[in-house]
Nucleic acid binder design. Structure first.
Lengths: 218, 218
DNA sequence: TTTCGGTGACTGTACGTTCAGTCATTAACC
DNA sequence: GGTTAATGACTGAACGTACAGTCACCGAAA
């Protein structure tokens, strides 16, 4: 949904624009973002932005899709479907965390869609967004049960819902103000979460998932 | 932080105002809410609102506190501290769900604080808000371990973080557009979540928490 | 000279906040 | 009981700012 012009400009200019737009939306939120300020930061004129996109809303939706695509590529592009479900979950948390810490704004823009007053975006994207992950998790859970490494008395849909929920909570704790504070409080941390101390927390969450999924004895 | 005037008006008028304000903020979000429209809906004049509160921001913070207080009273006011941790968790999910379904907007306003562009609110409230629940959960987990009904190899802080995270996810799934759609997708439901079908989902989540906490054998 | 990306002053609207004044109720006094 | 003064909630037009979106024009390249 970008206009032709946006496809014609140099890759460098396009990347800078996407980066600055994502950053500004992440910082100020959708309503707080001023197209004039975006123009300044991205080093283009306001008029140019409207040569690139039809509207602010259109730009925001494009960024959501674009950033979701990036994180998906980072995670699923390097995931081996032959790994067992535990290894896959570990990979998702691991590469997901790395990606978010390097691209904090990406996840913040995505989480914007979950806010009140953003229903138009939520309705347009939630189903598409979640379906991919849901299907993948459910498939792997079913496989795990067949292999006997996941307890058979679990409701697959609900289990997938919960695992993905923990993932969302985890990345939100890395990227948005409120949840970062919450994480620090709960874990009684002295410093904010960062790429150095993250490994241990992530490992503990996965340990909890193990406890939830592993068959009672074995 | 309401002004004197707000305390002096009739209880009925005050309640109506709080109700309409919560409802409008929940529907449109903080930035989408127009003080003029609020005045119309609440049946007062624009000027009166500014006799009640210093500013829009001030009003929003008050509503957050007020609504958080309501849900806390509904949940913890009816919780017996002698129950074991599993019974307590069940009670929290149960009464929490009932309260949210009857007061959807309440939770939406609270969740607003987690959105980008709302940092000023997050920073002002996150610590206070989470501390209460965190302390309660950690205390009960420690007690449970002593009693031998919770596995002793769990990290208490992380476990509390996860349980409360599941609760947030659960109530978000009952109240905000994006997460309602997500829940429906994951659980392959034909209808949206409501007070009739909620019981079963809630029971399943608690089952998962049990699997995470119960000692391996016994 | 046609094409096309770029520009930024401009426009119209939306909205938070203010304020000068109104009006109903209560208090004070005779 | 009647008159007057004080109180304080209430009002909505008006103000100022912010900001999404437009447009008439520019300059370079082909």
């Amino acid at each position: 949904m970008p206009k032709e012009t946006f496809k014609n400009i140099s890759e460098e200019k396009r990347q800078r624009f996407i980066r600055e737009a994502t950053s500004l939306f992440a910082e100020k939120g959708y309503y707080g973002t001023d197209m004039g300020e975006l123009a300044r930061r991205a080093g283009v004129s306001k008029g140019s932005i409207y040569n690139y996109f039809d509207s602010k809303e259109d730009l925001f939706l494009y960024l959501s899709d674009y950033n979701l695509g990036l994180s998906r590529k980072a995670i699923y592009g390097t995931l081996d479907p032959d790994w067992d479900i535990y290894k896959q979950i570990e990979h998702i948390f691991q590469t997901g965390a790395e990606f978010i810490l390097d691209n904090q704004d990406t996840m913040v823009v995505y989480l914007s869609m979950t806010s009140p007053g953003m229903e138009q975006f939520a309705n347009a994207r939630a189903v598409i967004t979640e379906k991919f992950t849901a299907d993948h998790l459910k498939r792997e859970l079913a496989k795990g049960i067949e292999q006997g490494i996941v307890r058979a008395d679990l409701d697959i849909n609900m289990t997938a819902f919960i695992i993905n929920g923990l993932y969302i909570l985890f990345v939100a704790s890395l990227s948005t103000a409120y949840f970062r504070i919450r994480l620090k409080e709960y874990l009684e941390m002295d410093e904010e979460i960062n790429s150095d101390n993250i490994q241990q927390h992530q490992a503990k969450i996965i340990e909890h998932i193990h406890k939830m999924l592993r068959p009672p004895k074995g």
